[in-house]
Design a protein around this nucleic acid. Structure first.
Lengths: 348, 348
DNA sequence: AGCCAAAATGTAAGCGCTTACATTTTTTAT
DNA sequence: ATAAAAAATGTAAGCGCTTACATTTTGGCT
């Protein structure tokens, strides 16, 4: 018969098993694992040998319960179905991993109610901190987070006026810059395809950016033709056709993201419109899709990877009791082939 | 002074607080939450009222520790950076959520060593079950999983001969069917762009499928020109150019997935080759990209959503002690515009 | 009314770990 | 050498929950 010092059969070894095997207390084993510098070299070696020998790995539930933190970070993104968020989140995850944290991803389908639910779920599941997209949400959510002392970083936006931590970029300014370029090409009748602006602050800001530029160029911003739809290639296609049916017809269509722009491009091709000869089209994001579109897309480049990385660093800092600064990353314009001079009126 | 029956200040309420507030024991509260049919209606109401009033939600770490399960499922996918896995995983997640489980996603960058590490990490973090892509891995991994009694479902493949649970499709057969169609169009010189076959069983099977079809059509399978590379549009472009430099030049290039095919398409356009007039190109997966490629892609349609859904169901069944059956889902050919007759020799 | 099985609830022992505090060992200064 | 300070280790009390088992309540029968 075995005595009780050994772990029985196929059971997963516990801290106590390691302690017994190494001839020390569980506290010492715990210290070896969590703060090795507080333990004598010799002891450390003995314990680590025991850990290896038994193939021990800690039970995270128990650790979380005892320590009051899970080392899990939650992220809630609007969608996983296209690549808009993939690069940024991937970088976020890599950075977290460096810091011994795990990422839990949920998606909200661009629905505010679902996002709130997911925030609750992730919190309850023990997320120590959260990455959120955009800043627009019920103040109660922020109160809830504050009450639970859960740091959150808002990304894909820059929100310097607010006291919420954010790591992102200025959607409005970025789109404005692109719009200025479009207007410099002589376009007077402007169209725009965007996500629904009521529930999406990034989309709203981008549209505002276009209007800003129009105003400064002496055009009436209210004449911007706007099509709102969900992000998908198909919807971009449909929206573009609607825009092309308007009179006067836009000579430039600025899209809220690259996915919509690619849909517009497809529609243009079907309508036998030359890009950019007949109509100019622009995107936003600079995902891989943009560079391989039927006509390579002129778009706004967003530094997704750096954003993800910085967001992770900010959160780690917040968890360590520091107060990280908001970060606004610069965007740039990525010139490709879909932006050109406005066609001369007689040519149309 | 408060007495100890009430939760103090901003603290998160616990089971005991609810029990005190409802005037019952913690066991009863626990039962109300986990098996409501085992308590009296009246008690249930009292307890649930207290839960609402206090805004209680259970601590999952504690629950996991006590119950020995986390209700968390892990998934390890080769990459999050393109959309190949997005739809399937999204469906998987939705189905899990229906069953009260949370998804933890990790990515392995197509590296077997990283995958093993992630499997360990997720296991240690308490994943009750795992979704894995493909079947090729060190037998030790399966032993480890078996020893820990962690159910795993292999997806994106069908592995009927093995005793591992799988929910997927037959890569070899699917590609063979497409290859037959290509060959029926009179192509004699075949090229292929694939992921590295040594570390990717899906890729390997797909190439085998092409060879199978060639053999049956009386061609020498060893004459298939193969370019191996990582999945990306850029790499598809480069590989296609290499293939086009071969003599005799392939008249059809079958790609291991849609991403590579889109890259090939881009290269073809740069080389002023007509698709499918000069060269036919095919893909695999039927992701959204396929339908919006410069020339809409003829490809293999994979039922990603259903696969994800069934995989989740299989895992839930396994966790409930049932032995779910392997599932092989049918694929279909999605005809678009990149497959055509082989050009007549004199035309070249 | 009285008995008994079934239903409902309570009691309390953990789950595996961290950590405040107590104790022992080692180092440093005198 | 010796006292005091510092470092290392041990002891044991939880963290918030589930669940086996014990106890009480309920309700159907006779």
């Amino acid at each position: 018969m075995e005595d009780n010092a050994k772990p029985s059969g196929t059971d997963v070894p516990t801290l106590a098993d390691v302690a017994a095997a190494a001839g020390v207390s569980t506290a010492t084993v715990s210290r070896c694992l969590n703060s090795p510098d507080r333990v004598k070299q010799k002891t450390l070696k003995i314990v680590m040998d025991a850990v290896d020998r038994l193939g021990y790995s800690p039970n995270y539930s128990a650790r979380a319960l005892a320590a009051g933190r899970t080392n899990t970070i939650g992220a809630i993104i609007p969608t996983m179905e296209n690549a808009i968020f993939a690069r940024g989140i991937q970088a976020f995850q890599e950075e977290l991993q460096q810091n011994g944290c795990t990422l839990l991803v949920a998606s909200s389908s661009y629905r505010q109610d679902l996002e709130e639910e997911q925030i609750k779920t992730l919190t309850v599941r023990g997320a120590d901190a959260l990455l959120l997209i955009g800043y627009q949400r019920d103040p109660k959510v922020y109160e809830f987070l504050a009450k639970r002392k859960i740091p959150a970083v808002l990304t894909w936006v820059s929100d310097p006026d607010s006291d919420h931590l954010s790591v992102g970029f200025n959607n409005r300014q970025a789109m404005k810059t692109l719009a200025e370029l479009v207007l410099e090409n002589g376009h007077k009748v402007m169209g725009c395809i965007t996500a629904e602006t009521s529930a999406n602050d990034r989309a709203r800001d981008r549209v505002s950016g276009i209007r800003d530029a129009m105003k400064e160029a002496g055009l009436d911003p209210s004449e911007l033709l706007v099509e709102e739809t969900h992000y998908s290639i198909e919807n971009g296609d449909v929206a573009f056709r609607k825009l092309m049916a308007a009179r006067p017809r836009p000579t430039a269509v600025m899209c809220g993201n690259d996915v919509l722009a690619v849909g517009a491009l497809r529609a243009a091709s079907a309508l036998k419109l030359e890009i950019p000869g007949d109509v100019s089209i622009t995107g936003f994001d600079d995902i891989e899709l943009a560079s391989v579109a039927p006509v390579p897309l002129t778009t706004v480049h967003v530094p997704h990877r750096r954003m993800g990385q910085f967001a992770a660093q900010a959160l780690m800092a917040a968890l360590n009791g520091n107060a990280p600064d908001n970060i606004e990353l610069p965007t740039s314009i990525c010139f490709r082939e879909t932006l050109g001079k406005a066609p001369s009126p007689n040519k149309r």
